[in-house]
Structure formats: C-alpha cells, structure tokens
Amino acid sequence: MTRHAPYGLMILIAAQLLCAVFFLGDVVADGLEAGWPHFMDWHFGVEALAALALIAGVGFEIRTLMALLRREAHLKEQLGLAAGAFHEIVTQRFADWGLTPSEQDVALFTLKGLAIPEIATLRGSAEGTVKAHLGGIYRKAGVNSRGAFLALFIEDLMTQPADPVPHHPTPVSPTGT
C-alpha cells in the first residue's frame, strides 16, 4: 500500500495546519490588541477571513486524504483496473446513501462475502457493533436483507456495459502531490 501512499498530501496538510495555527493566533492577538471599537476594522476582517479560508481548505484536504486512504485500504488486496472501476461504482453508491466511513468499510466487507464475526475481527470491533452498522447500511440502501443488498450491485454489474456510470464520482484532486 505504500506504493500509492499520499505522503505529499500529508506533508502539505501538516504544513498548512501549522500556517493556520500561526495566522489564527496572529488574528486573535491583533483582535485582542485592537479592542472592541476597532475589532471590525477592514484589515482585521480581511485577515480573519483569510485565516478561516485557510482552515476550510485544510479541512477539505483532510477529507480528501481520508477518502484516498479509505480507497487504498479497500483496494489493498485487489489492485487492478476492473477492481478500481467497480470500486468507483460502489463508493459512489455508498456516498449517495450517505454511509459513514465505518459503514462503508463494513458494507465493502459484506460485498466481499465476509460473515459478521469475520468483519468484527478484521475491524477490531464487537459483533454487535458490526450488526448495528449493517442495520444502518440496509436502512440507508432501502433493502432488508444481505441478498437484496448484494443484488443492488449485481444489477449494476449486469447493466454497466450498456450505459455509462450514472454519476461520475468527483475525481480526487491531486493537490500538492
């Protein structure tokens, strides 16, 4: 997995986080020094906005990094174009349903045919937790059994060649790498 590890992005996030802390500290210090009447001074406002924009950017990068790492963890043992393409469809479905990161992980293991105890062992959590995740997954996907859940993807696989992927997943921006 180290083959694709996004070290560039990690280092960029660390560096920008430092900058964000520095600028935020600076803005707060300036604000305290200026006191209330000058608090809304334009210079202060611009500085505060710039700092907030930087923090928002860092937040976005962290989300991207987490998505990248999740994808890599999922593809770890099955690198390849076909697996990658299928994974795109699967993650798109997961995102549409609004699955949490943990639910996405459990859902993928379920797709791979793993039983609840096996998933619990792999994730280092209790079987009850995995069952709760599965309940959430089925509810969000609008199905009520493992068979119906699998069928959703079988259908995709069978219809896929005819018409292209319905929604293209947003390509992961290669910021800083």
């Binding site: 180290t2 590890a5 987490m66 790492l69 999740r70 890599e72 990161p101 992980d105 994730r123 280092g124």
Partner: peptide
C-alpha cells in the same frame, strides 16, 4: 515510519481499530 503513519491514518479513515 511513513508506512506506520499511513496505516494509523487508514485505520482512522475506515473506522478500523488496532491497539
């Protein structure tokens, strides 16, 4: 190690747990 850091971040991203 960079690999260790990546593994820990991946655990966080997927909600997996290792001690």
């Amino acid at each position: 190690s960079p690999a260790g850091v990546t593994a820990q971040l991946s655990d966080m991203a997927t909600g997996r747990k290792r001690a």
